[in-house]
């Protein structure tokens, strides 16, 4: 489904290289966790895949369903089925959650030749999805992320994911800022949404998320590269031994930021 081939990426116009040769293959039905210390390039990886204009891919290629997506705008990548749950969801004052989601849903539906929903049909549709993340219906008429608590914002991201039903979900530190109850709700939501037809990439610092969502693979990033890949037990090992333990395992060029 998603294939990164030796991807190098830098901050547009500044020449600061963040990804230094990342290769990764994700098949449908799989859940991958990407872990690593701050500044290792995890969030950049998510932004590069979703097409953030701040980053430029200087080498390598990213294939989605067999085709390069490097030339696609972020909205075109979203139409193709890529969804990013933001680490810091953005506020859009004056635009209600419903308005945004109907616009999103219908735009994506139109691009894929699916039927668009009128406001009434859409209202029925999203109300079903609310339960999945135990959200209050009041949420729908509130402005997107405006005045939301950190936890509410994260929950809203997963709610949007439930509504849009992407084939690849990149969850960028969705667990950070969540209390233990919210973490459970959000994790259960993600588990319910996951099917054999889609894939999930979890980006996280902490092993605790992986108690709720069990990954098929765990990758560890350091200084812009994937330095180790293993099964779910790798996360536990990291938790116990810390990232420094990897230094004795692998050779990493350059400094850790």
């Amino acid at each position: 489904m998603l294939e990164l081939k030796d991807v190098y990426a830098e901050v547009e116009g500044e020449g600061i290289e963040i990804l230094k040769g990342v290769s990764l293959t994700i098949n449908k039905g799989e859940i991958h966790a990407i872990m690593g210390p701050n500044g290792s390039g995890k969030s950049t990886l998510a932004k590069v895949v979703s097409g953030h204009p701040e980053y430029e891919v200087t080498q390598g290629d990213i294939l989605f369903n067999g085709e390069s997506i490097l030339e696609l705008d972020p909205d075109e990548r979203a139409h193709a089925g890529i969804f990013l749950a933001f680490q810091y969801p953005v506020e859009v004052p004056g635009v209600t959650n419903t308005t945004l989601l109907r616009e999103s849903y219908n735009t994506i539906a139109a691009s894929r030749g699916r039927e668009e929903l009128d406001p009434l049909e859409f209202d029925d549709y999203i109300r079903e999805k609310l339960d999945l993340v135990e959200m209050n219906p009041d949420f729908l008429e509130r402005s997107v992320n405006t005045g939301f608590s950190g936890g509410e914002k994260k929950r809203n991201e997963i709610f949007q994911m439930a509504v849009l039903q992407p084939s690849l979900a990149l969850l960028d530190e969705t667990d950070s800022g969540l209390d233990i109850d919210a973490l459970r709700v959000v994790s259960e939501g993600i588990n319910k949404l996951h099917t054999s037809e889609d894939a999930v990439i979890l980006i996280t610092h902490y092993q605790r998320l992986l108690n709720y969502i069990v990954p098929d693979f765990v990758h560890v990033m350091r200084d812009g590269r994937i330095v180790k890949t293993g099964g779910k037990e790798l996360a536990l090992e990291l938790e116990e031994k810390g990232y420094d333990w990897l230094d004795s395992q692998t050779t990493v060029n350059g400094e850790v930021k």
Binding site: G51, D73, P74, V90, V92, L101, S104, T107, L164
Partner: peptide, 20 residues
Amino acid sequence: FYLQQRGISEDDAISLIVNG
């Protein structure tokens, strides 16, 4: 970018932000 990531074109995103 946030709105584009949700499938909305750049022009529509600006329009949506301004209308909001």
